[in-house]
Each structure stands twice: as structure tokens, then as C-alpha cells.
């Protein structure tokens, strides 16, 4: 998937242009209901009263983002979208009102501003992080599939990227038998990433057990490197307990 490798270039645009745009709508008055409804109608699905994949793709294109850009995650967050690939009328219109934007250019500027704010505001980032889990859930599910979790972790950590993110995602990639990521594990990973040092990790503390497995895996890898540097081909896997969400 594209954004896993693609560097984040959202904010490297032409500063002059950006400044101009911000200038034009900085003092914008109340957003117009009329404009919002028109905007909604432009992307709305012909059958259903909601913006679906197709509409979202067009919206992204107009905004000059890819659908899997961080900014689009931020958009969903600001619209408080309840699920992926769908903005309801309520979410879209109320969300844009809150965002104070009623045009494509306006939305773009607000998103740029939001992304900047997220870089500095770790409390706001935490809200985005927690939102992301619910956003990524399949309707009716309580755990995030492993594949989706990996994608969303990579995406949400476009900012505040933790040092151990790559190793974490590599570990997850190596253990496809992990059934899914529960909410608590998702939420706690932010704490884990922010505060925990693998060398002093204590599995008797209240960390979810998936982190135990991760730390064990990392320590095993580290030990292997120390004791047996020549044997890089060794594909021996450490024993990992399959995470079973439904005991």
C-alpha cells in the first residue's frame, strides 16, 4: 500500500501559495449552509444519502490528496466519521461547520492547520490516536484486524513517530497468527511507545500481553545478534503466544 513507503509531503507545498490561501479565508465569516449543502451534493452517492468510497475519492482528488494520506485521516477525525469509506450527511455538514470551512480550498487550509497543530499538541494527538481505532473497525467488530492495525499505526504515527515503530510493525508482520488488536492494546501502545524502554520492560506490570511477546522477540533478536552474528539466515522463530481475543 502506497503510504507505507511514501514519504509525507503534505506540508512541503509552495509556501507562498499556502499563505495566499490562508489570507483569503482567514477572516471568513460564518460558513454558508447553502455552500455546504452544495458541496455535500457534489460528492453524495446517487443512491444513498451519504458520501461513499467513490465520492470520497473524488473529494480527495479535488483536495489534491490521496485517500490514504495522513490529512485524510485528520479529515475523518475532524468530521468525527464513525467508519471508513463513509461520511454521513450529518457528519459531513456538521463537521465542516465545526471546521469552519465550506469550500475545497477552505477544507484544505483547515487540514493543513490541523496537521500543524497535531505536531505540537500531544493531547490532541492522543484524541486522534484513539479515534483511529474506532474509525478502522469493521462494523460489528471489537478488534482491529492485524493488517488494518499495521496500516493505521503507520498512518497515525505520521506525526509523533515513536522510535520503536518500525520494529513493532516488523514484529507484527512476522506474526500473522495474531488474530487482532483489541482496543486496550491499541490505546496502551501509545503509552508504551511514549514511556517504555525495552531493556527495563517488566512483564508483571499492566501492559497487554502482546507487548510481552514483542519485547521477548526483540530480546531474542538482540541475543542472537550478540551470540551468533554470522548466522544471519537463521529464521528460527521465537515462540509467540497467539493472541486470542475471545477467551
Amino acid at each position: 500500500s502506497g503510504f507505507l513507503t511514501r514519504p509525507v509531503t503534505l506540508l512541503n507545498g509552495n509556501a507562498n501559495t499556502m499563505g495566499d490561501i490562508i489570507g483569503t479565508i482567514k477572516d471568513s465569516q460564518q460558513v454558508s449552509d447553502h455552500a455546504l449543502t452544495a458541496l455535500y451534493q457534489r460528492y453524495k452517492d446517487p443512491q444513498e444519502d451519504a458520501i461513499l468510497s467513490d465520492g470520497i475519492e473524488r473529494l480527495c482528488a479535488d483536495l489534491r490528496y490521496k485517500p490514504d494520506d495522513f490529512a485524510i485521516l485528520v479529515l475523518a477525525f475532524r468530521l468525527d466519521a464513525s467508519q471508513m469509506c463513509r461520511f454521513t450527511r450529518q457528519e459531513f455538514i456538521q463537521g465542516l461547520k465545526n471546521l469552519n470551512a465550506d469550500s475545497i480550498d477552505g477544507i484544505r487550509v483547515r487540514l493543513e492547520q490541523s496537521v500543524e497543530k497535531l505536531k505540537d499538541d500531544s493531547e490532541l494527538f492522543k484524541q486522534l490516536y484513539r479515534f483511529t481505532f474506532g474509525f478502522g473497525l469493521e462494523p460489528g467488530h471489537r478488534t482491529l484486524s492485524l493488517d488494518m492495525a499495521i496500516i493505521l499505526w503507520r498512518l497515525v504515527f505520521t506525526v509523533h513517530t515513536p522510535k520503536l515503530l518500525d520494529r513493532w510493525l516488523f514484529f507484527l508482520g512476522q506474526h500473522s497468527q495474531i488474530r487482532g488488536v483489541p482496543k486496550d492494546t491499541w490505546n496502551m501502545f501509545l503509552n508504551f511507545a511514549e514511556t517504555c524502554d525495552i531493556t527495563s520492560y517488566n512483564d508483571e506490570e499492566a501492559w497487554p500481553s502482546l507487548f510481552d511477546d514483542f519485547v521477548e522477540y526483540e530480546n531474542d533478536r538482540a541475543n542472537q545478534n550478540v551470540t551468533d552474528k554470522t548466522d544471519e539466515e537463521d529464521t528460527r522463530q521465537p515462540q509467540v503466544h497467539v493472541s486470542d481475543g475471545s477467551l
Binding site: 478488534t143 492494546t185 497487554p208 500481553s209 486470542d244 481475543g245
Partner: peptide
């Protein structure tokens, strides 16, 4: 820990 996780879930 797994039991705690499961009950949280």
C-alpha cells in the same frame, strides 16, 4: 494478563 485483556474487551 490474557484474562484481564479479555474482560476489558
Amino acid at each position: 494478563k490474557k484474562c484481564i485483556e479479555s474482560l476489558i474487551e
